[in-house]
Write a protein that binds this DNA or RNA. Structure first.
Lengths: 101, 101
DNA sequence: AATGCTTTTGACAATATTAGTCAACACATA
DNA sequence: TATGTGTTGACTAATATTGTCAAAAGCATT
């Protein structure tokens, strides 16, 4: 269940693009796009953004979901996954406070 | 700055193992262990646990830190990293509630 | 049925990434 | 010198990811 894939598929259909047209527009093989939408292959962030642009949609939420999926994939069904996420969050917040930019 | 690496280095020294002895004990090349402790190479979870065992330490916190580092590495300096972590957390919690085990 | 479009599938090659091996180096100390 | 410490870089091997292609399958329409 790749929510990014499903979301992008819906967006594509609403925007009236066939799989082929969309694939050509962002310069990838149609087979890859097909697989990505169905969660059989991973997206790259670049492609997510390109597709969002193509469909005239803001990409922020899609990117966030994309990253979230990536993180969850990395964690697998790890026993301490939740704890790890909380630690990671703390680190990020700490970093955010103590950096310029 | 790999906290897992530093933690394991301290633990090793406190446990009185030389790099070579520890590497032999867990059956890896000493060069790899050296690099891992200094954050030049990634650990695997298996090695973290093996080392914790060798040093007679509970591995839970180390594993959590290991996973956290892995996640943060994946996110890089992504603008929406924090948001992604929060989404991932929600997913995990949701999953935890709705599964047996 | 035949055409023309769609999407899916699998096989394969090309690339990139990661992991493992080894020898040499530098430093300290007995 | 000889022994033990940790570090470094070059190299190979193993794995994973990505890209390419052709064929197949689905679905309307003519």
């Amino acid at each position: 269940m790749s929510t990014v894939g499903l979301q992008l598929r819906e967006l594509r259909e609403k925007a009236g693009f066939s799989l082929r047209k969309a694939a050509v527009a962002i310069d990838i093989d149609v087979a890859i796009l097909s697989k990505m939408e169905r969660g059989e292959r991973k997206f790259s962030k670049e492609l997510v953004v390109k597709l969002a642009d193509l469909y005239k949609t803001n990409s922020d939420k899609l990117v966030i979901d994309y990253l979230s999926e990536k993180v969850l994939y990395e964690l697998g069904d790890e026993e301490f996954g939740l704890e790890a996420l909380k630690v990671a969050e703390k680190q990020l917040i700490y970093k955010k406070i103590n950096t310029h930019g």
